[in-house]
């Protein structure tokens, strides 16, 4: 397993002792791996897909983006719609005239049949 390279001259000799410690997989590894693979095969494909870290991270990111976008859209929609009280206030002058002039403000030549009704 250890295909040891020839150590460069500047490396201390004691560094070779690092290779003295090694490990082997536990007994029964192959059987356990086969069991785990078989269990994974029994899961529906979409469950397996969701369990993959990349897929999970992507799903969460999409959820966050959609939530933010939805909130941004709702906020902008609400601010674009005129507030009812504000609209009424804008139309309603302080004197209650709705911005329409009274008879005294208009010259006589402009008065017609309708204004005649107003003037009376």
């Amino acid at each position: 397993m250890n295909e040891h390279h020839e150590p460069p001259s500047d490396e201390p000799r004691w560094l070779r002792l690092a290779a003295d410690l090694k490990a082997e997989p536990a007994p029964g590894t192959l059987a356990r791996v086969r069991e785990r693979l078989a269990a994974r095969e029994r899961e529906p494909a979409w469950v397996r897909w969701l369990g993959r870290p990349a897929a999970l991270a992507t799903s969460v990111a999409l959820l966050v983006v959609c939530a933010w976008a939805g909130d941004a859209w709702i906020t902008s929609a609400v601010s674009a719609r005129p507030d009812g009280a504000t609209l009424v206030s804008a139309l309603l002058d302080e004197d209650g005239s709705f911005g329409l002039g009274t008879q005294a403000d208009e010259p006589a030549s402009l008065s017609g049949a309708d204004s005649g009704a107003v003037s009376r």
Binding site: L17, A18, D20
Partner: peptide, 21 residues
Amino acid sequence: PGLRFEPVGEWDERMDRQAMA
């Protein structure tokens, strides 16, 4: 860590190789 001591190569026998490793 469960690492086993399996010496590789020669070493100065005067030194406690396993302890040093």
